[in-house]
Amino acid sequence: MFERFHQYAAPLHFHRLSRKLSPWLFGLSAVLFVAGLVGGLVLAPADYQQGESFRIIYVHVPSAWLSMFCYMVMASAGAAGLIWKVKMGDIMARASAPLGASFTFLALATGSLWGKPMWGTWWVWDARLTSELILLFLYLGYIALQSAIEDRRAAARAGAVLAIVGVVNIPIIHYSVEWWSTLHQGATVTKFDKPSIDVSMLIPLLLMALAFQVFFFAALLVRARCEILEFEQHTAWVRDYLRGGRKV
């Protein structure tokens, strides 16, 4: 009885909360982006080896982190939808896939633009780059699955299984630079030691990472609202919401 009520109510409340929250999150991320960009492009000194080219780190690393974080959001939301039949789980998994795909693409593209001047090549098939490319294909596979299966519940179930199976790729991406010899260097910030990056370069990196993270949540909320409207289009509250000048 409680569960039924809960399932019915969750998307409605989420939708209302999301409308309040997303503009603030977009605003906050904009402020963080400005701070991070000033810090990263202007205030941070050039690197002792890579010179000014190292500034690509401020878009490359946050998008790479986000590409993995978003995958965990997608897989755990999908698992929640699968196990507990939480409608919001299916909705969040579906909403996060395009975001994840675009940030994975950004990580790969900026990495390529960094690799050319520093390593001397746009692309190599080493374990780190290849596993990140597989991540992009997992996202694209999930998206293709969603658009290929007409029935939303069946699509959510199939997508969740794909997302859960693909989770094995996440530790592989992270540890690839330790387990195998790769052209990509080892971890700088996310290791148990002290980060091997100067504080003046680290602070803008953390600001940019936070900006990307907040931006991700803001965009996720808007995408989730779209999914909610589509999932729930025949319910009374959506009709009320649409009729009531969208002020419910």
């Binding site: 690509i56 878009v59 675009s102 593209a109 965009a219």
Partner: peptide, 28 residues
């Protein structure tokens, strides 16, 4: 000029702007 790396650095930031801009506008 970015120490001679202008094309790489600004392309990377340009791509980031496109991806972020698309994700900010398209869902709305």
């Amino acid at each position: 000029a970015m120490g001679g790396y202008a094309s790489y650095v600004w392309s990377a930031y340009g791509l980031a702007l496109i991806v972020l801009g698309w994700n900010a506008l398209a869902p709305g």
